[in-house]
Design a protein around this nucleic acid. Structure first.
Lengths: 157, 157
DNA sequence: ATTGACCCTGTAGCGACTACAGACTGTAGC
DNA sequence: GCTACAGTCTGTAGTCGCTACAGGGTCAAT
């Protein structure tokens, strides 16, 4: 539990190292209102304590679960202000969960098409590559539904 | 098959409508080197034909499968230049497939944590919200491995 | 002649960082 | 004291893949 021992007067680099957060991201989260502005030394250096570290861990953990910064802000407010935030937090998480599940469904569709076409390529010695041909063909599901313009709302990067 | 009939001298809006692509995105793809610069009318208006449409459909279909614009460029080059692009296309798609599968695994981890904590919230009448508490606790997998800084390489938005 | 719908260009914005330039500070070795 | 180097500070620009808009020109119909 060496990461959890109480330390005060840390600089930004140590806070970053202790939490596994990128150095610049700490400042970014501060500017974005996710972390409070820490006190400064006489020369203007940021000085963090374990409360800052705890809060940063919360943010990082929420980000790992895919919450947006807006959602993290909302969760932090619940953690700070409310003594019984369960209902609201649960609602927030449920909405987010639905988004995660929709993304999984989307990615699974991609996965299956990719697997199929890669399998069709097989030896790779034919003149018409099935993968390239698949990309030139119109989407089956769209053609069947007669719907020329429906695409996933999600942007995959 | 009304979308597939050959049309020449389309303007940008019609090409966009026929492919379901956003109007501005057509221009963006052109600037990004994914679509060739179309001939212009005397007054400088772009004039597309069915070859442009075919190429745009290719790009959109590849994007639906989650390929990055760089990958789409590579696929287009294969489709254009090589008579037997199977091996290379298949390699490209396999690398991409691995990325898709890693994202799915990542999202499934999020899903399971979210489901568990939402279930723990239950009635929502307890003073310590399990969801908030989970976010304050350090990541189990990381703590077990004694690894303070390993996070998913993927950015989920 | 005017209205409105199209087209053109360049540019700014999004989210969530990440990186860097240019200035200052703090410490260690000589 | 001098120098080197590592740390900190600020603001700003770049990333990806779009999306939107301002400010101008064009075209068809009324």
């Amino acid at each position: 539990m060496r990461d959890q021992k109480s330390v005060n007067g840390m600089q930004r680099a140590e806070l970053a190292k202790r939490t596994g957060c990128n150095l610049e991201t700490v400042r970014y989260y501060e500017k974005a209102g996710l972390l409070p502005e820490p006190p400064r030394t006489a020369r203007g250096y940021r000085s963090y304590d374990s409360a800052h570290e705890r809060r940063l861990r919360f943010v990082l953990r929420a980000r790992e679960l895919g919450f947006s910064l807006d959602e993290v802000r909302a969760l932090l407010r619940l953690a700070d202000e409310r003594d019984q935030p369960c209902a609201e937090a649960s609602r927030l998480a449920s909405v987010h969960l639905a988004g995660v599940q929709a993304k999984i469904a989307d990615l699974r569709r991609m996965e299956s098409v990719l697997q199929t076409t890669i399998a069709q390529c097989g030896d790779g010695a034919r003149p018409d590559c099935p993968l390239i041909e698949t990309l030139f063909r119109e989407d089956d599901s769209r053609r069947k539904r007669g719907d020329p313009a429906t695409r996933s709302k999600f942007i995959h990067r």
